[in-house]
């Protein structure tokens, strides 16, 4: 439905805040994307945190390490540092990893 399903607009709530601790002390409880190195190393043979991805929501390109990772949630959620749109979700379900990459238009991965 128009006006409901869109992601937060650039500059919208939460945009521009970094690290933990928002202006009202409640905190925006996220880490940088480097914290995904461990979980993604279970799936990929190379370090994915240096991979650069294009946000399918706003078009901004950033490294996974530069994005914002929310971990206090039913799955880890990586969000675009420009528009807060969801880039990636990953969770463990027993012996499986469930990886959702639909928030990226594409990923550029340095193969060395």
């Amino acid at each position: 439905m128009n006006g409901w399903t869109g992601r937060p607009a650039p500059g919208g709530p939460g945009a521009g805040e970094r690290g933990t601790g928002g202006p009202d002390g409640l905190g925006e409880d996220y880490l940088d994307g480097n914290a995904l190195a461990g979980p993604l190393s279970e799936v990929f043979l190379i370090d994915m945190t240096s991979a650069r991805g294009r946000c399918d929501s706003c078009g901004a390109v950033s490294a996974i390490a530069e994005a914002r990772l929310y971990v206090n949630a039913p799955a880890m959620v990586l969000r675009c540092p420009s528009c807060s749109g969801v880039l990636l979700r990953v969770r463990r379900d027993g012996g499986q990893a469930v990886l959702d990459l639909r928030g990226f238009s594409y990923l550029t991965i340095d193969l060395g």
Partner: peptide
């Protein structure tokens, strides 16, 4: 009361709040 957060916390003023059913 644990706080779970999958994204930025929206700060919505009551004056701007609206609830609708479509």
């Amino acid at each position: 009361f644990p706080v779970l957060s999958a994204g930025p916390t929206p700060r919505i003023a009551r004056a701007d709040w609206e609830f609708r059913i479509v």
